[in-house]
């Protein structure tokens, strides 16, 4: 099979299977969280039922523009994932992802609603907190493997984690913000206890909320794949290692989610930037000393 054909298949697989994997992961998240809290929890398929039900609800629109912004949000998240699984430039994937985040912001702010406005600005603060580390992660892969191309990174002799453990720690740290997990679930949360109602998603109803949820599944799959990429090299066994690593990281995020309380944005910014500078920056510095 030619390389391009494989790329096409993987890209298609992401588009088709992405939401299923994301949804199942979400289901397990809820199940595991419930067990941690001493509850039984819903079935792992519950997220799918929820989304299905959302699609059947009547759309009560505050602003018509919201729906089109949410749809654009979905498009650009899928684009980021497709670029990633298609083996393109990592920076390009992340740039596309921040464009997507922009559309979420616009969707939530177009309503002029007090709760979603607060959510929007918290979301902005979250973006400002994680963005440096996201870009640094791409730099980390480049320094470890000599390329930004995902298709070349997976051909590396040594997996990136060997040279870039600091970047890995930093990325896992900001993943908590990206996944909207406590203690960094400021803008909106999957739990019932949010002081700004539902934050950015407050005014999203029916199909809008369904699309947002779907988008988050796509995004989570993409982000977890970046985690996996740290462990992948030319050896086929490394894929197995990567999958195990992804599960461990995901479980770790759930654990954090259930054992910590929400912080203020100031602390979030301080912690996220601190970790970025200490873990990412130090690793960056050391790699540059070694390479040159």
């Amino acid at each position: 099979m030619s390389e391009n054909l494989i790329r096409m298949i993987v890209m298609l697989l992401y588009i088709v299977a992405g939401p299923f994997i994301g949804g199942i992961l979400d289901g397990f998240d809820r199940k595991i969280s419930a067990r941690m809290q001493g509850r039984k929890g819903p079935t792992v398929l519950q997220p799918f039922y929820d989304v299905l039900k959302l699609t059947q609800k009547q759309l009560l629109a505050v602003n018509k523009f919201q729906l089109l912004m949410v749809m654009s949000y979905l498009f650009f998240v899928i684009l980021s994932g497709v670029l990633f699984f298609g083996g393109f430039d990592m920076l390009l994937c992340f740039f596309s992802l921040s464009t997507a985040a922009m559309f979420l912001i616009l969707a939530s702010t177009s309503t002029h609603s007090p709760f979603s406005t607060i959510g929007t600005h918290r979301e902005l603060a979250q973006m400002m907190s994680y963005e440096p580390m996201v870009l640094l992660t791409a730099v980390g892969f480049y320094l470890a493997t000599g390329t930004f191309q995902v298709s070349d990174i997976i051909q590396a002799k040594v997996p990136a984690i060997v040279y870039a453990p600091g970047f890995f720690i930093g990325f896992v740290f900001i993943l908590t913000i990206k996944f909207r997990k406590s203690p960094f679930d400021l803008s909106t949360t999957h739990h019932a206890h949010q002081e700004v109602v539902k934050g950015v998603t407050t005014e999203m109803v029916g199909i809008e909320y369904a699309i947002t949820t779907l988008t988050e599944w796509y995004e989570n799959v993409f982000l977890l794949a970046v985690v996996g990429l740290f462990f992948i090299n030319s050896n086929p066994i490394s894929y197995l290692v990567a999958i195990i690593a992804v599960f461990i990281v995901y479980f770790f995020e759930i654990l954090i989610d259930n054992t910590s309380a929400r912080v203020k944005w100031q602390l979030m910014l301080k912690m996220a930037w601190g970790v970025t500078i200490v873990a990412g920056g130090l690793n960056l510095f050391i790699l540059e000393l070694i390479n040159f």
Binding site: M102, S110, H121, M127, P132, L135
Partner: peptide
């Protein structure tokens, strides 16, 4: 580091402004 941090703060103030323009 200057560039990655600078681009995140750049994003913040522009998005904030952009978001303000919309409304109902």
């Amino acid at each position: 580091l200057f560039i990655v941090f600078g681009s995140s703060t750049t994003m913040f103030y522009w998005t904030k402004w952009f978001a303000k323009i919309l409304g109902i």
